[in-house]
């Protein structure tokens, strides 16, 4: 569809202020189709705020962001038709069954009737919950719940998916399985935006932006970033050095 310069997400000088607090400070980036783009940074760095702006949930204070060619400030509803979003909290209804959650989100996403059954089966399989239709969502363990949340977020087959700390509070095994799903989606041509504060997850991304105090302080592939830092560096080194540079610059 509408893509410019081959990228599906274009961000230019994005700023978001809450009163006097600058949550997102002049962020610019481009993400192309099928890419897994990571936002790495400590809590409060502005990762979630940026993602929420890109999802049309928050209005930017200044700057521009195009998602799938639509301006998030002017056409947030068009943006919403092209994206899937999964927040940190695996926002499912605990008091509905697995199947009822899927049916509800299919309905509000406007999945065509004839595709519902197929998408439902896909989501159930993806979550590893085949045959568990009537299971209450509240009774699911973290990993299953997380995968079901992802399944519910992509029922309408969005070309871009935003995942806000999708693996927080999930055990390493489930985290690994979840990343397999992310790779699967990316191979299928879906653009995946993911925020994390786990260093090892940063390595899984095709490209990364390090965020600190609202700014992107480093941007590149994990290999590039480590190489810049010096031979034998780890992501941890990159991260710490970047923050130190930023602190020095700020002073």
């Amino acid at each position: 569809m509408q893509q410019r310069n081959g990228s599906t997400v274009q961000v230019r000088n994005l700023v978001k202020r809450f009163g006097s607090f600058v949550a997102v400070d002049d962020v610019s980036l481009d993400v192309s189709r099928g890419e897994i783009f990571g936002f790495l940074g400590p809590n409060g760095a502005g990762k979630s705020t940026t993602i929420r702006i890109l999802c049309g949930l928050l209005a930017p204070t200044s700057g521009q962001a195009l998602v799938y060619g639509f301006d998030v400030a002017k056409e947030p509803e068009r943006v919403k038709q092209s994206i899937g979003y999964m927040s940190q909290r695996f926002s499912l209804y605990d008091d509905l069954t697995v199947e009822e959650n899927i049916e509800f989100f299919s309905g509000v996403y406007g999945v065509p009737r004839e595709k519902r059954a197929e998408r439902k089966a896909y989501a159930m399989k993806m979550a590893g919950l085949e045959g568990e239709h009537d299971r209450m969502t509240r009774l699911l363990a973290g990993g299953w719940k997380q995968r079901l949340a992802l399944g519910c977020a992509i029922l309408h087959e969005p070309p871009i998916v935003f995942l806000d700390e999708p693996t927080s509070g999930v055990d390493p095994m489930a985290r690994r399985q979840f990343w397999d799903l992310i790779y699967e989606m990316a191979e299928g041509g879906t653009t995946v935006f993911v925020t994390t504060h786990y260093m090892e997850e940063a390595e899984y991304c095709h490209r990364l932006a390090l965020m600190y105090k609202g700014r992107t302080i480093a941007l590149g592939t994990p290999a590039e970033l480590k190489k810049q830092q010096g031979v034998g560096s780890t992501m941890d080194d990159v991260f710490i050095a970047s923050i130190e540079r930023e602190e020095a610059r700020a002073q």
């Binding site: 919403k80 927040s87 605990d94």
Partner: peptide, 14 residues
């Protein structure tokens, strides 16, 4: 509170 409102808000629902 439980966060589902945010989830609904990103759907194309009017």
């Amino acid at each position: 509170e439980i966060g589902t409102m945010e989830q609904i808000m990103v759907t194309p629902i009017r």
